[in-house]
């Protein structure tokens, strides 16, 4: 199945979760946050939150700015 991860179409295995997507991106253990279809997904439920076909996942971190 396909989902849109940080603006790019990605092929994900069936049953993929938010945690799967973070592994795919090589996300660090801290300092990141995830929005699934425009809603924040708390860290505590990353592993239990499924990413469905066509979902939009945004993975953000802090960069230099402001």
């Amino acid at each position: 199945m396909k989902a849109r991860v940080n603006g790019e179409d990605r092929e994900l295995a069936d049953g993929a979760t938010v945690a799967t997507v973070l592994d795919l991106l090589g996300a660090p253990a801290s300092g990141v946050a995830v929005a699934l279809d425009g809603e924040v997904v708390p860290r505590a439920v990353w592993a239990s939150t499924p990413v469905r076909e066509g979902a939009a996942v945004e993975v953000l971190t802090a960069v230099q700015g402001g």
Binding site: A27, L60, V63, Q64, G66
Partner: peptide, 16 residues
């Protein structure tokens, strides 16, 4: 000190 929030794959990591 301020930081901005951007997609993980964007440049600029390490500031935290």
């Amino acid at each position: 000190t301020t930081v901005a929030m951007r997609r993980l794959d964007a440049a600029g990591g390490g500031v935290l």
